[in-house]
Amino acid sequence: MARFRMTTRWALTLAALAVLLPVAKAGEASAPPRWLADLPLLQVLIYGSVAGLALSVLILLLIWWKEWRRGDVW
C-alpha cells in the first residue's frame, strides 16, 4: 500500500513536471511569441472593411429602391 502511494506520488510529480516545465520555460524565455501583421494584411483589413461598409449602404439602398417600386417595403 505504502509502496503504491509512493509510486503514485512520483508519477503525479513527474506528470506535473512534464506539463509545467515547458509552460514555465515558455514563460521564462522572456518574450512570448509574436506575429506582427504585415502591410498587405492591414491593407486588406482596413480597405476591405471601408469598402464593405460603403457596399452595404449601396446594397441597402438598392434593395429598398426595388422593394419601393414593387410596393413591397412594409
Binding site: P33, R34, L36, L42, Q43, V50
Partner: peptide, 30 residues
C-alpha cells in the same frame, strides 16, 4: 474613414505602428 485614410494612408500607418506600437499589430498578443 475615407478622409482619415487619405490623410494618413495605410502604408504610413503600418510603418508608424511597427516603429512605435508594434504590440497593436501582434496577432499573438496575450
Amino acid at each position: 474613414a475615407v478622409l482619415a485614410l487619405r490623410q494618413f494612408p495605410v502604408p504610413e500607418l503600418h510603418r508608424a505602428l511597427v516603429e512605435e506600437h508594434p504590440e497593436r499589430l501582434n496577432l499573438l498578443l496575450p
